[in-house]
Design a protein around this nucleic acid. Structure first.
Lengths: 205, 205
DNA sequence: TGTACATCAGTGAACGCGCGTTCACTGATGTAC
DNA sequence: TGTACATCAGTGAACGCGCGTTCACTGATGTAC
């Protein structure tokens, strides 16, 4: 336990974590600066020692999310080992795992409506995370005959969109809109069919 | 122009349309009952003559959205003409067209966090719209050899997730996160690759 | 056609609330000597 | 080691605001006779 008292010790990170909890409970729009402060055991005004305001705190949450996300994807990709294909499939699974384990981060990143233009640091971290996906897609593209190879960025955009769609529509606790399949299976099957369509998996695979 | 005066004439629909505009401008969370009332030229209290409250108005917007959505999809599907495959692809395009042309409806339906359980009428209309997609998927599945046929609901879930992902990630005016491809092309190419993976398109198609 | 009346859609004022943000302040902490 | 002092993280009160919702009301509309 960090030292306590008049000075908090690590209020900045405590606020980020309070925000994470609130966002995952009530969504990025339901999160309020005042409640995050209260959760961290501090006056709302104290927040302004560490952040420019509500949106700045939200952007910090998103940025930390992109950092974790990028690391997770890079770890899953593992420099293309044991094969470009296996490594690619691993990143797909990592995407969903991230959304599941870090719902607050995920919502701040994709559902808070933050404009990347207004937060250069955030934009940088986000770009770095996306680069991992692009690298994985490029490595796979290189294995395809040049004449029927889609652009790698389109490739990764498809996988990203499919993953994001599965998360938003089927991996949330939305009562009344339950998925007939576990999201993990749904995504894995979808990626499998897609890769088969690109000739990267045998028709029987 | 409908008659004006002390009695509005068609306030209920006017409020829905005001809400639509506000939602597409500021998102489903930025929409307020008071502003919708003001936009419709009416006191906030007047809203309660037609809706139980803020959420009820939002649910009405979503329900009208699902109704339009269902009709649009059914029209695009056109009872499977000229072929199950062509009709299926048409519904994919219709999905994106709906999101583009009816952003307020789309956001109310998918981004407002309404629980279908709490709004039975909404749940019914939503189910009817989804049934169109399921029907299109089932018709396509019937053309596949039984031993490698995925469940039709998984099939439609994949297409729905891909479409939704493309809309959310690439078809919004999110500055700084622009798509390298037109969303329509991205979705059409993605669906093409997916159908090829199912053996429903020739490898050269 | 004219009058009396019931209906009910919208008014306008008021409410309590929580929000983000500001400000002068206080007092714990860490450093210089 | 002890003292004086600068720093600055957090306090607490206050602000103006717009929100959703309520209430008694008013007066335009439509119907019965």
């Amino acid at each position: 336990m960090p030292k306590r008292g008049y000075h908090h010790g690590n209020l900045k990170q405590a606020l980020v974590e309070a925000a994470l909890g609130l966002i995952s409970e009530k969504g990025p729009q339901g999160f309020t600066l005042s409640e995050a402060a209260k959760t961290a055991g501090v006056t709302p005004a104290a927040v302004y020692r560490h952040f420019a305001g509500r949106e700045d705190l939200l952007a910090e949450v998103a940025q930390q999310g992109y950092a974790i996300f990028g690391d997770l994807m890079a770890f899953a990709y593992d420099d293309g080992k044991p094969s470009a294909l296996k490594a690619f499939e691993a990143t797909g699974r990592a995407y969903l795992a991230f959304a599941r384990r870090h719902p607050g981060h995920y919502m701040a990143m994709f559902e808070a409506g933050l404009t990347l233009d207004a937060h250069p640091d955030l934009a940088l971290t986000a770009a770095r995370a996306r680069a991992v996906l692009d690298r994985a897609a490029t490595a796979l593209c290189d294995q395809m005959p040049a004449d029927r190879r889609p652009p790698a960025t389109m490739f990764s955009a498809h996988i990203w969109a499919l993953s994001h769609g599965v998360v938003e529509l089927f991996a949330r606790g939305q009562p009344g809109a339950r998925s007939p399949f576990p999201p993990e299976d749904l995504l894995e099957a979808g990626i499998g069919i897609y890769l088969r369509g690109l000739g990267l998996l045998s028709p029987d695979g």
